[in-house]
Design a protein around this nucleic acid. Structure first.
Lengths: 249, 249
DNA sequence: CGACAATTTGACTCAAGTCAACTAGGGTGG
DNA sequence: CCACCCTAGTTGACTTGAGTCAAATTGTCG
């Protein structure tokens, strides 16, 4: 099956402000760009057409030539082991930037696909790199983004090497919760964008374990789970399990 | 106990070329800087005095104001969980840059200390950041370094969530081996710079497991281990275990 | 309305962890 | 130079959290 790619050119030249009116502009790249420079940024950003569930933003091995920002929906990044198994690297939610990992080798080391209908902005690296030399705060922001990703990955390494199944699930739920809250949405009642199996893959657990842990957390009145709908009943209990962290993030 | 920090100023102004004559200059930052600009880089780099085993380069919570390059010796980065346990994030060998993770938050998220007597170059970030705007290849190199670290971390996540104890040890040994070879040293016979317990901590295993796996690999004639001295007898067997990767790196 | 995929639940297994005892190095100070 | 001590490393016996296998249940979508 062929996967639709993002449109590579915007339609004609009917240029309309995008970032300026985007509700995420205080989370995303524009936060590092003064208003008078925003036009420069707008000019290089491609809004693609929406992706459906399962559509790839890019695949492992594709040439690295852009980074991406989530406008709506959810994207997962994953790599494939030599044994052919998938390893999920991260989930990306609106306002977040992904695809930076491929920079150093010139090709994406992992693939990225939409978990649900999603809108993705494409930011060609050959455009933003020189721009970042003209706008120091933008350069700094790019450094920050990469540094932040390093930190997050290291948190996850810690989780994978030291935490129990319960602690892992608790951490993931709190991470999702805090990222929703940051966008002004409810952090206590939300819909999981990923399957149990994706949760497990990301956390280094098998599906059955994820399912059992969720049941257990439900029995202890920490959560209410109904399919993908989650309600966090006892955030403190969850935070205690996760060992703090994530709340702020 | 107080930990010695790196000297913050070079002695007087007796400036002598450092990078230019450093045997690592084709691995380290200078590789991204043309000869005529090398002086600019030299000027901002502090060679500190040597650190002994256990001395900190920086501690978690210290203000981020520089990145570091290993000239000789070995450094480990580690963070401490809320429960007070240490999690080793990585080992840094000559020619490698570390300390980038603290950039985004302005303070180091992890500590870094010398595993053996080590010489470390300090590169103040406030100096290299503007310099990187004047030297595009340097900016690119910094991006590359961070991107590379993201990739490496993700490899490690994969290892932690999917691999068996044998596979983890094999991966670590091959990683060390290839990093030595890159510097022109023997990749088949070398001295481990870290304790069994550090190996285990890094790989998400307890000491006893590390010890047992090494014994097993020795029995299968894949390795010869004598304390910290290692000889790789069957690199292919090891690579098969690790599932390729690492060789090139 | 089926058919297939995702989720849950139970019974059983096993790789790695825990606990405990023992051995081997590696400094240090007398 | 040697005796001692302390830490690092090894080995064995036992336990256990999470994985595997299998079957039942629910959800989804053409």
């Amino acid at each position: 099956m062929e996967s639709p790619r993002l449109a590579t050119k915007d339609v004609g030249h009917s240029f309309q402000p995008q970032c300026e009116t985007c509700s995420l502009n205080n989370l995303c790249l524009p936060l590092a760009v003064a208003n008078e420079d925003l036009g420069l940024l707008e000019e290089i950003i491609d809004r693609g057409r929406p992706l459906h569930r399962g559509d790839h933003v890019f695949r492992a091995g594709d040439t690295f030539d852009a980074v991406y920002a989530v406008r709506s929906g959810t994207v997962k990044s994953y790599s494939v082991t030599s044994a052919g198994e998938e390893q999920i690297i991260g989930f990306h939610m609106p306002g977040e930037i992904f695809g930076l990992g491929g920079l150093s080798s010139g090709q994406h080391q992992s693939g990225a696909l939409a978990l649900e209908t999603s809108a993705i902005c494409r930011i060609p690296f050959d455009d933003i790199e020189p721009l970042s030399r003209r706008i120091p705060s933008l350069q700094r922001h790019l450094f920050n983004l990469m540094s932040r990703e390093i930190q997050d990955d290291q948190q996850l390494m810690l989780l994978l090497s030291k935490k129990s199944a319960e602690e892992r699930i608790a951490s993931l739920l709190l991470s999702l919760s805090s990222r929703l809250r940051r966008r002004g949405l409810s952090g206590s009642r939300f819909r999981l964008p990923m399957s149990r199996s994706d949760m497990g893959n990301y956390l280094g657990l098998v599906v059955e374990t994820v399912s059992r842990v969720l049941t257990r957390l439900q029995q202890s009145e920490t959560l209410r789970v109904q399919g993908r709908e989650v309600e966090i009943l006892a955030p403190d209990a969850l935070a205690a399990l996760a060992g703090t962290r994530w709340q702020d993030s």
